[in-house]
Amino acid sequence: MYEQVRHFIGISSGHAARLSREQKSRIVATCWTAQMFKHFENPKPGYVADWPDLPSWQQETDADIFEAIEKSLS
């Protein structure tokens, strides 16, 4: 998931910084879901829930994760 987000930030040529926190959160959530399907045959529904179905604390955490990865690359 880290590599997916890092690559996304890299190919945006610095413009990912212009994304809203919600957009950043959605990217992390989507990358997480893809990794769950990659590594688990039948992941728990909560592990692959669509972004709008995530609790607000998880949405905020996902945005924090994106921003931490973003900061580590600068």
Rank of each mutant, 00 (worst) to 15 (best):
M1E: 12
Y2E: 11
Q4W: 07
Q4G: 09
Q4C: 04
Q4M: 03
V5S: 03
R6I: 01
R6K: 13
H7W: 07
H7P: 00
H7V: 07
F8H: 12
F8E: 04
I9H: 13
G10Y: 05
I11D: 00
S12V: 02
S12I: 04
S13T: 02
S13K: 00
G14R: 00
G14W: 12
H15S: 11
A16R: 00
A17R: 01
A17P: 06
A17Y: 07
A17N: 13
R18K: 03
R18S: 11
L19P: 10
L19A: 05
L19S: 02
S20V: 08
R21H: 12
R21D: 15
R21S: 14
R21Y: 13
E22L: 07
E22Q: 15
Q23P: 05
S25C: 10
S25T: 14
R26K: 15
R26I: 08
V28A: 06
V28T: 00
A29T: 01
A29W: 03
T30H: 03
C31V: 14
W32F: 04
W32C: 11
T33N: 11
A34I: 15
A34C: 11
A34Y: 07
Q35R: 11
M36H: 05
F37R: 04
H39E: 13
H39M: 09
F40L: 15
F40P: 05
F40N: 14
F40Y: 02
E41N: 12
E41K: 04
N42G: 00
K44S: 15
K44M: 10
K44Y: 10
K44F: 09
P45W: 13
P45L: 13
P45R: 13
P45Q: 14
G46I: 14
Y47G: 04
Y47C: 13
Y47S: 15
Y47P: 01
Y47R: 08
Y47A: 15
V48C: 09
V48Y: 03
A49M: 14
D50I: 04
W51V: 01
W51Y: 12
P52W: 15
D53L: 02
L54T: 02
L54M: 13
P55K: 09
S56P: 08
S56D: 13
Q58C: 13
Q59C: 05
Q59E: 02
E60Y: 14
E60P: 00
T61G: 00
D62R: 00
D64T: 01
D64A: 03
D64Y: 08
D64S: 06
E67Y: 06
I69T: 06
I69L: 06
I69N: 05
I69S: 05
E70T: 04
K71R: 02
K71E: 12
K71C: 02
S72A: 09
S74E: 07
